[in-house]
């Protein structure tokens, strides 16, 4: 197979175009490989514009008023057109449900703390925090093991 690389300046960032005559088995392998190199991504929306976000940049997914949002480590927020329970099943292992309304990325957790009134506070490595429902802690523990 002959490989040619063309630089296309007006292409969206994080996009690769493969020009082929027809679909084939090697092509699927190539696609799978490119996806594995690039890392998994998710499409988020802000001001009705789409943005591709690498999952490794995602800090948490949360639902608010029936909409789902993703928060990145750097503090940006985007709307995501997926339900929380679908995300819980499809996201990589580091993402885990911590309450009815939130999924977090365990890679960015700094510490778990119990507040004096008895709320589980999760401190993230970027200094932000969230709270967890005690019911979900067992699953979190299993995921960390």
């Amino acid at each position: 197979m002959e490989v040619q690389v063309k630089i296309i300046n007006d292409l969206n960032p994080n996009t690769i175009v493969l020009g082929v005559r027809q679909h084939s088995e090697p092509l699927n392998k190539i696609i799978a490989y490119i996806e594995s190199v690039q890392g998994a991504t998710i499409t988020g929306q802000i001001d009705s514009r789409n943005k591709i976000i690498s999952l490794s940049d995602c800090l948490s997914f949360y639902s608010s008023q029936k909409k789902v949002y993703v928060k990145t480590f750097s503090g940006d927020e985007f709307k995501v057109n997926k339900r929380l329970y679908t995300l819980a099943n499809s996201l990589p292992r580091d993402f885990i449900r911590i309450s009815n309304t939130e999924i977090i990325n365990l890679a960015y957790v700094n510490e778990f703390e119990v507040s004096p009134t008895g709320i589980i506070i999760i401190h993230f490595k970027n200094g932000t925090q969230t709270s967890s429902s005690r019911r979900y802690l067992r699953q979190v523990k299993e995921r960390l093991s």
Partner: peptide
């Protein structure tokens, strides 16, 4: 919480 931190 302590055992979770340990695992972290």
């Amino acid at each position: 919480a302590e055992s979770l931190n340990q695992k972290l």
